[in-house]
Design a protein around this nucleic acid. Structure first.
Lengths: 223, 223
DNA sequence: GTCTATATTTGGATAGAC
DNA sequence: GTCTATCCAAATATAGAC
């Protein structure tokens, strides 16, 4: 942990805070430098330009979602349990990493074409996980009376929305919201096994702290 | 429709398009003027400043949602039918008025405090409509096994999300998505009457074109 | 790795003529 | 109602010394 490393982290932290509160276009390179206690000239020693700063930030955020999702479907096998984990995970990421998620959702479109396409590819891979899980659940009769695409879009956006209204000063934890939204998801999907509604409490789910760890500190994408 | 009126409309249209594609902070006053075939000096004859342009845009959009929602609860009486209309309406607005809705969702936070609070008040009134309908449905046993606040937040964000993925070049109409999402909402809320699940087809709903008219051309807020 | 100094462009906004 | 001309602050980014 030399000086360069902590300076880099300071820059990333300041840029994240500013992009989240003032938006990418509304944030000046001067502000970032000032917040990181640097001149703009020094800042450019670490960063090629403002676009690259945003790109790396978004790549890391969506990369974390993707690697977490991949870990889940590798670890958990049944569709209803995979979906429960995906909802828990997505909700927790959008609550715990409020700033990162907000920047991803809002500022992705500000990237220039080639960078945007790179991030889109990762986002598509992440959505593919949801697609597969939901389609397999429908195919095996666990999820019922829904169009898989509609369900996927509705569920992802409902869970992403947590980012907007979640407050860390409230009394309800991200884990608790994850549980509640899993129940809402099961109701929406008419989740059933052996003719009876799936109850989250009776599923064989991994230790809840495992998902929280995934949300807070995702493994590398190629792990 | 004199020249002044059409110039005003041109400015609003150009600003809407630019704010939707490049964001508020990413749009220059020069671009707006150029798009409206004016010099910047002429533009300032119509607009006090850039902030005011955004404020009026957002106020109109949220005002349309609010007045539409009020029309619905005035016209329709049962909670399950009110909710069906709210979902239909919200989905249609976010599909038909894609640019307006996107600017509302993304750029609201760019307003300065006092203007933002004004818009927030309208948004809160709109959310209150959803709150009341869901709470009444739960209280009268039509909606079951859900926390009203969770359900409201999940539903609104799920319907708002239509704005992100809806494409007017697809084959599925906003009305059709509204219907599908109403069914998802009923499933999520365990909507029941006389012990049996509510089916959208058997509800006594207003003419579908009435809701589309509300979405496309909302009545004045004080109407 | 950090600085001073600066190049260059673009930003929002206005004065005042017509 | 529209223009020319302009002010001034802020933007991104770089050159070159230390």
């Amino acid at each position: 942990m030399n000086d360069a490393r902590s300076t880099e982290n300071r820059i990333k932290e300041v840029a994240l805070e500013l992009f989240a509160t003032k938006g990418f276009a509304g944030t000046g390179i001067r502000e970032i430098a000032q917040g990181a206690k640097l001149t703009t000239a020094s800042l450019y020693h670490y960063v090629r330009n403002k676009d690259e700063l945003l790109f790396k930030m978004l790549e890391e955020t969506i990369g974390g979602l993707l690697s977490g999702g991949l870990s889940i479907i590798r670890t958990v096998s049944r569709p209803e349990e995979q979906l429960a984990c995906l909802v828990q995970f997505h909700v927790q990421v959008h609550a715990f990493k409020k700033r990162e998620s907000a920047v991803l959702d809002v500022e992705l479109r500000r990237l220039k074409t080639s960078a945007r396409e790179q991030v889109f590819r990762l986002a598509d891979s992440y959505e593919d996980i949801w697609r597969t899980v939901i389609e397999e659940g429908v195919a095996s009769g666990i999820f019922n009376d829904v169009d898989p695409r509609d369900a996927r879009l509705a569920l992802i956006n409902m869970c992403t929305g947590v980012n907007i209204w979640y407050s860390s000063t409230g009394k309800i934890t991200p884990q608790e919201y994850g549980l509640r939204f899993t129940k809402l998801a099961f109701a929406m999907l008419n989740a059933r096994r052996a003719g009876r509604p799936c109850r989250v409490e009776t599923l064989e789910l991994p230790d809840p702290s495992w998902i929280t760890a995934l949300a807070l500190d995702p493994p590398p994408v190629m792990g």
